[in-house]
Amino acid sequence: MKMASRLLKRAGISPELSDQLKRHKIESCKDLLTHTSFEVMYAAGLSYQNTLEMLEAVSKVIAPPITTALELWKLWNSGSCFSTSIPALDKVLRGGLPCGTITEVTGPSGCGKTQFCLTLSVVATLPKELGGLDRSVIYIDTESAFSAERLVEIAQNRFPDYFTCKEKVLQMASRVHIFREMTCQDVLNRLERLEEIIISTRAGLIILDSVASVVRKEFDTTLPGNLIHRSNLLGQESTTLKYLAHQFNIPVVLTNQITTHIVNQGSGTASEGDSGLVTAALGNTWSHSVNTRFILQYVDGRQRQLLVAKSPVAPFVVLNYTIQKEGIAIKENDDKETFYEGTDPSLQSIRVRTSINVDTT
């Protein structure tokens, strides 16, 4: 359980006692609870009764709390959403991206996934009266796709009335913390250390761009055992992200790539790596790890579409958009909701440019 990895000082243990236990290589709740009460008593230098009370207190801290449907309903209606700054999309989502959950943005290269993430980064730093979170951003970049110049350009063109001076631009940029992680293990290590970083930076948004990039480079799923190892790694990443989203009640946004599937007419199953239906990468199991999924796809050379392919609150909706200086833009006459017949989000067909060679690994 991810909460068991919480450091003792985050579980209500005093700094002095935490340091004492650390000298005996007991740093997390899991470390503490895997020792016998007598071992903990010796390491902590406490009486047996005080040791039992500490063990009970730590056990209660990491135990999953009981939540009622009424509490969840009150939380939703309290405005626990993060505005995308795209009114038409916020309307469909009943306020924006739900905090405490994972949102995935998938689509072919060049369709605007990183543009979407940069826009959200700007919005998160804005004052609350402007629809922002007044918090910082943790941006994990696995493709070296982050552009500080583009971040500033989006900010100044999307919110010209706010970013009127250099000081506000610099303040915004200083609150977006970039971590470039280029291997699967680096990404996982970063995620497992994020709890302290979230607290120290007052982060209100986590972005991982992209979740698929390093995984697909390192795991050739045609080799024996690799698919299992990849699934285990993705499972660890999604568990950690879900914990962080829930623990701090903040939105987590991921980007994903595309792959191709073909349905075997005899068995009715889909296999990854063949030409055929273009869908989101990483498979069916991963698609169930995210709470909300947006698909960005091409209509023509300039216009693109955003599909709400999975959401706990929104219907299957299509919004037409273009990429402008201010980022993703939806014209006023194009913001009417267009519904479509949805399907399994892991098998939802995605339109790509005919000139693009789809990565099938």
Rank of each mutant, 00 (worst) to 15 (best):
Q156T: 15
V137W: 11
F294V: 08
L126Y: 08
V317D: 01
D300W: 03
D300A: 03
R23H: 09
L191C: 14
L151D: 10
S349R: 09
G96C: 04
F339K: 12
K2Q: 12
R135H: 02
A173G: 00
G301H: 11
E143K: 13
S275N: 12
T164I: 15
R302Q: 15
I328P: 05
V40K: 12
Q257L: 11
L282S: 03
A245I: 06
K2G: 00
D300M: 02
D274L: 14
G273H: 06
L32C: 07
Y321F: 13
L97I: 15
Y340P: 03
S37V: 08
R353K: 13
F116I: 08
P127S: 05
K331C: 08
S144E: 04
I197Y: 11
C165S: 15
S37F: 01
R202D: 15
P312A: 13
V176P: 05
K325W: 02
G235N: 04
D141H: 07
L233H: 10
H288P: 00
K217H: 04
F294I: 06
Q303V: 13
T354N: 12
L234W: 04
L347S: 00
G235W: 03
S231D: 06
G235V: 08
Q297A: 11
T259A: 05
S59F: 06
T292C: 11
T142G: 04
N256M: 06
T292L: 10
L347W: 00
D19M: 10
S144R: 15
C81I: 12
D209Q: 01
V263L: 14
L120S: 08
P127H: 07
F179Q: 03
I262S: 13
E272A: 13
L120P: 06
D90A: 10
V40F: 09
S37D: 05
S275W: 11
G45C: 08
L244C: 11
F316H: 15
K331S: 14
D141Q: 05
Q156V: 15
L89A: 10
Q297F: 01
S80H: 10
E167P: 08
L93G: 08
I258W: 09
G79R: 10
S231M: 05
V152E: 12
S267A: 04
E341A: 08
C111S: 15
L307M: 13
V92K: 02
L307T: 08
I330F: 07
D19T: 07
S210R: 02
E16C: 01
D359V: 13
S80C: 12
K336P: 00
I199P: 01
L241Q: 08
S144V: 01
S147L: 02
A173H: 06
G301F: 04
T354C: 06
Q185S: 14
S271P: 00
I26V: 14
A203L: 02
S355W: 09
G268L: 03
T322P: 08
L254K: 07
T67F: 09
S349T: 07
G110V: 10
N226S: 09
